[in-house]
Simulated assay, not measured.
Amino acid sequence: MDSKPQNGATAGQALLAAAMLLPGVGAVHAETPPERASIGFKYLYYKEDQPGLDRVRVHAPAVSVLAPVAGDWSLGASATVDDVSGASPRYHTAVSGASRMKDLRKAGDITVTRYLSRGTLSASAAYSTEHDYVSRALSLQATLASEDKNTTWSFGVGGSDDSINPVNRIVQGAGRQTVSVLAGATRVLTPLDVAQFTLTHSRGHGYYSDPYKLADERPGQRRLDTALLQWNHRYAAQGATSRLSYRFYRDSFGIRAHTLGAEWVQGLAGGWSLTPGIRLYTQRAANFYFDPVYDSLLGAPFPTGYVFGSGRASSADQRLAAFGAAALSLKVAKQVNRDWAVDVRLERYQQRSAWRLFGSGSPGLAPMRAVNLQFGVTRQW
């Protein structure tokens, strides 16, 4: 299957980013251990399709726990199972008869945190496995608050080690290793405004090609950088908070991407809250991505002049193409009582070549649509 990270974060990068990004709502302060233990359950349903093609479906139940330990420590852990099925594009938007896929991914992580007078120290580990893919990740994180507690700096380093063994045996025992570093700052600007800026740099080497696609040969090294700016403003009279974000991404494959996000968190009577959101995305194609113009002798999907085993980087993977996308979401949450909370979130996503900003999109790509439905329940004691 082709569900492995290609132009997104690796497991190590995702673990590091999730551990380090601060909520950014309310006052910045030296974090304290959780007063109560909690357990949460979430269920995710994801479905994507293209015109005339029902592509991927994912069912993913997950459970997480967080507990205070020995006063100044906390222990957190989570586990999830992703049941993936559907049709995977062989190249561009074409699908072969043998492209049906079904896979089961099992993943878990654990984090230990030590709380200090003006900051925290955390260590995290993650592991996930599929029938043809195994990923292991470790990270270390630290936060430090200023004396006036209006600024918190965050730092982190993480690494992942992935093993790839595709069932078609294009490669056997292939690997990929990635190291990521992160630095950021969260600042209280006014009693109602909090801003956060985060930089992440990753460097990896190993096997990046997709073994299930023809004419897919990618460089053996990859560097990527992201810059994330977030700003939250509290509207006290309305009982609401706005969340704005901008993310810039670039990598050594030549991809450049911009993401704008906005959410409005509206508190309501009876413990209810509504959070509508919108996200806009645009991406430039990788340097070695080729559009659907095929070799007259070899046919599809080979680019003109393609030579087997030449080592020339090439890929027709539509995730490396130039396109734009938009997503609309709505979250409904209810604090039932002191111990119980529930939430439901629905997101509709659509991707089109013509929606790319700052340039033309890649031709020949069929529109892609996706729906993401999440349900969660949390219990504290």
Rank of each mutant, 00 (worst) to 15 (best):
L199Y: 13
Y207H: 02
G204M: 04
T226S: 09
R243Q: 12
R223N: 14
A195W: 11
G270W: 13
H201T: 11
Y249D: 01
V265G: 03
P211D: 03
T186D: 01
A237N: 14
V265S: 01
S252L: 02
Y212A: 13
W231R: 08
P219Y: 09
Y246R: 11
Q266S: 00
L199W: 05
I255D: 01
R187A: 13
L224I: 12
A262V: 07
D225F: 08
D210C: 08
G206A: 07
P191W: 09
D210K: 08
V181F: 10
E217Q: 14
G261D: 09
V181N: 07
A237K: 15
H233W: 02
T226K: 04
S252A: 03
S242V: 13
F197S: 12
L228M: 05
D225L: 08
A262G: 13
Y235L: 15
L189W: 11
T190R: 10
Y208C: 06
A257H: 04
D251I: 11
R222L: 04
A227P: 01
N232L: 11
T190E: 04
D210R: 06
L182E: 02
Q221N: 14
L268D: 06
A215C: 06
R256M: 10
H205A: 15
D225M: 14
P211Q: 02
I255H: 00
Q196N: 09
L199K: 02
G204I: 06
I255R: 02
W264V: 11
L268S: 10
Y235S: 01
A195K: 06
L224E: 15
R187E: 08
D210M: 01
I255E: 08
G206E: 06
F197N: 09
W231A: 03
G254E: 05
G204W: 06
A269P: 00
A257K: 08
H258W: 12
A237V: 15
G220N: 12
L199C: 11
T190S: 10
I255G: 02
R218T: 05
G220M: 10
E263L: 10
S252H: 00
G261Q: 11
T190K: 02
S252G: 00
G204K: 09
R247H: 10
G206P: 04
G184W: 09
R218Q: 08
G267A: 07
L199R: 12
L224N: 15
P211T: 00
Y208R: 10
Y212R: 02
A227E: 11
R256F: 11
L192D: 15
T198S: 02
R243V: 07
G267F: 05
Q238S: 14
D225W: 13
T226I: 06
V194K: 04
G220H: 05
T198E: 03
L182C: 04
R222Q: 08
Y235Q: 10
I255Y: 02
R187P: 13
A262K: 08
A236E: 14
H233K: 00
T241Q: 00
S242F: 11
Q266C: 03
G270S: 09
G254D: 04
W231H: 05
